[in-house]
């Protein structure tokens, strides 16, 4: 679907990483603020996501889903508990190591946050700056293929301002997938989209991830997309409730 190089690396990733889960959280606590103003948000989080798994994270507003996602995405430091992501111990990683880990993860945000002054093609291609091992020729070929596979082959040189919301989110997905991530983290990727384009985006994500055996952890409130999940985890008041199949 995307290309062979991608598929074969994904295959090896599966076989070597089968034993260790992509995400493994043990007794993770998290609080915002310091001293008296400290407010604990996450309580004793225990969680595993295996390679190739698609896990949805649901729960009421303010229950700590986004906070948990930022911890897993190496965007915040873990101070209490142990959190392993893609084989890295995030609980005792330096900032440089955290930045390294981020490069292995594909992020999809509620807001697409594309750079407005770069075209769709350039936005995706920018990711390859972080992966100098990919040759420029391969990078531009992969970019075009990815954008074509998310249905934007005819919008390669459009600036974000001239794309619809769904199209922008699809560019963001292409960008998240460009550098062949080992894990995809998504926070309400469909919230800004109408039901049809939301559905399309999720299908696309599922299809692309399945093809590569790439695990997905997705926060969503959207009941229409629950069917893509292998497992659904529910959060309430900063605690994880046992998942259901």
């Amino acid at each position: 679907m995307v290309d062979e190089a991608h598929n074969s690396t994904a295959q090896t990733a599966i076989s070597t990483a089968k034993a260790t889960p992509a995400i493994s959280a043990r007794h993770v606590n998290f609080a915002f603020g310091e001293g008296d103003l400290q407010k604990q948000i996450l309580f004793d989080i225990n969680l595993e996501v295996a390679t190739g798994e698609i896990v949805l994270l649901t729960g009421p507003s303010g229950s700590g889903k986004t906070t948990l996602l930022t911890l897993i995405g190496a965007l915040r430091k873990v101070r209490d508990g142990e959190l392993d992501v893609l084989g890295h111990h995030l609980h005792d990683a330096s900032l440089e190591e955290l930045v390294e880990v981020r490069r292995e993860i594909g992020f999809i945000f509620q807001q697409h946050n594309l750079l407005p002054f770069l075209t769709a093609r350039q936005n995706v291609q920018l990711m390859f700056h972080l992966h100098p091992e990919v040759s420029p020729d391969d990078a531009s070929r992969l970019t075009a293929e990815l954008l074509t596979s998310v249905g934007l082959g005819h919008r390669l040189d459009y600036y974000p301002a001239r794309l619809s919301g769904g199209q922008k989110q699809r560019v963001a997905i292409a960008r998240a997938l460009a550098a062949n991530p080992k894990l995809i983290l998504a926070d309400e990727p469909t919230a800004a989209l109408d039901s049809q384009s939301g559905r399309d985006v999720v299908n696309l994500l599922q299809e692309l991830a399945r093809g590569r055996g790439c695990p997905i952890l997705m926060v969503t409130h959207d009941p229409r997309i629950l069917d893509v999940a292998d497992r659904i985890i529910n959060m309430e008041d900063g605690r994880v409730h046992p998942g259901e199949k």
């Binding site: 995405g73 490069r103 990711m127």
Partner: peptide, 13 residues
Amino acid sequence: HLPQYATMKAMGF
């Protein structure tokens, strides 16, 4: 462009 810059940092820049 602060949100975009933050996004780039999140992606590993």
